[in-house]
Amino acid sequence: MKHVLFWLALLLAGRAALGQPVPYGHNPAAGHYAAVRGIRLYYESYGAGPPLLLLHGNGGSMGDFQQNIPYFVAHHYRVIAVDSRAHGRSADPADSLSFEQLADDFAALLTHLRLDSAYVLGWSDGGIGAVLLALRHPEKVKRLVATGANFSPDSLALTPALWQQQQRGYLENKNRVFTDPVKRNEWKVFKLDVFQPNVPLGALRRVRAPALVVAGDHDVITLAHTLAIYRHLPRAWLWIVPHSGHATLQEHAGEFNRQVDTFFRAPRIPAGPH
């Protein structure tokens, strides 16, 4: 098996040299399963250096970081990209799902990897997970970046178009019986964002890790809610990305990567603006 993985690694290196994308999320040379908390959590590891945990959004996978992983590997991080429970290759047969559950999974993964702590970058649901990881397991997070995160599922946090779309999707399907396991899982993941998260903003005052709060100026998370998150985190910095929607890390990948790297590597983080 080691010989097979060696040749696969050479093949992938050759693809990268030819400008062909690495198949993040489907890379046997870098992929592993961790048995944590009753499931097999799939992750891929790249590079060497300070550990950086990447957390994707609802219905996504680690493949969403296609434009980010190469940058952080080249800048000497050990990148650990994970498929969240019930996403990608991390199957979860249970009927329910919560953000607290996901945060505990991420902490268990770091423990499994014998990592005391890591930098954490989360997008959308992954941003929620990054903050909850720092809230529930403060020793695990050195610094965190959360882009496009929300802490309530209502019309105060979400733009009217997104909130109405979610409500319509739920009402149209709430009485359906999903016999197909794939559809049943998709419905579970969809409901996660319809009813959660429900984290009082006051609870964010207990987060001690330095945090960079990011959103696009045309994000699906309201500016008012993003500002409220920023104001409740004790050691927070805010970046509203101009000319960007929800996918800040994809629409402005170059600038996003540089800003995140600068935040993580700053030799001294001040006490904060609050």
Rank of each mutant, 00 (worst) to 15 (best):
residue 74 A to W: 05
residue 90 S to H: 13
residue 103 A to R: 11
residue 65 F to T: 05
residue 57 G to D: 10
residue 52 L to D: 05
residue 38 G to Q: 04
residue 21 P to N: 01
residue 59 G to N: 01
residue 76 H to T: 07
residue 114 R to Y: 00
residue 73 V to R: 08
residue 93 P to T: 09
residue 51 P to V: 06
residue 114 R to W: 01
residue 37 R to E: 13
residue 79 V to G: 08
residue 97 L to W: 07
residue 76 H to M: 00
residue 66 Q to K: 07
residue 48 A to H: 15
residue 28 P to Y: 01
residue 54 L to N: 03
residue 54 L to P: 06
residue 100 E to N: 15
residue 25 G to R: 09
residue 90 S to Y: 06
residue 108 A to E: 10
residue 37 R to A: 08
residue 51 P to R: 09
residue 50 P to A: 15
residue 89 R to T: 00
residue 36 V to P: 12
residue 114 R to T: 03
residue 101 Q to S: 12
residue 51 P to K: 05
residue 93 P to G: 11
residue 21 P to A: 04
residue 106 F to G: 04
residue 64 D to I: 13
residue 111 T to M: 01
residue 36 V to T: 13
residue 86 A to L: 05
residue 105 D to T: 09
residue 88 G to D: 01
residue 74 A to D: 12
residue 82 V to A: 09
residue 70 P to M: 00
residue 84 S to P: 01
residue 17 A to W: 14
residue 105 D to N: 06
residue 101 Q to D: 15
residue 66 Q to R: 09
residue 89 R to P: 07
residue 87 H to L: 05
residue 91 A to F: 14
residue 92 D to Q: 04
residue 100 E to K: 11
residue 24 Y to D: 05
residue 97 L to T: 14
residue 15 R to W: 14
residue 107 A to D: 11
residue 40 R to A: 14
residue 90 S to G: 13
residue 45 S to R: 15
residue 31 G to P: 06
residue 32 H to S: 15
residue 44 E to M: 02
residue 69 I to D: 07
residue 25 G to D: 10
residue 43 Y to L: 03
residue 38 G to W: 06
residue 112 H to I: 01
residue 97 L to M: 15
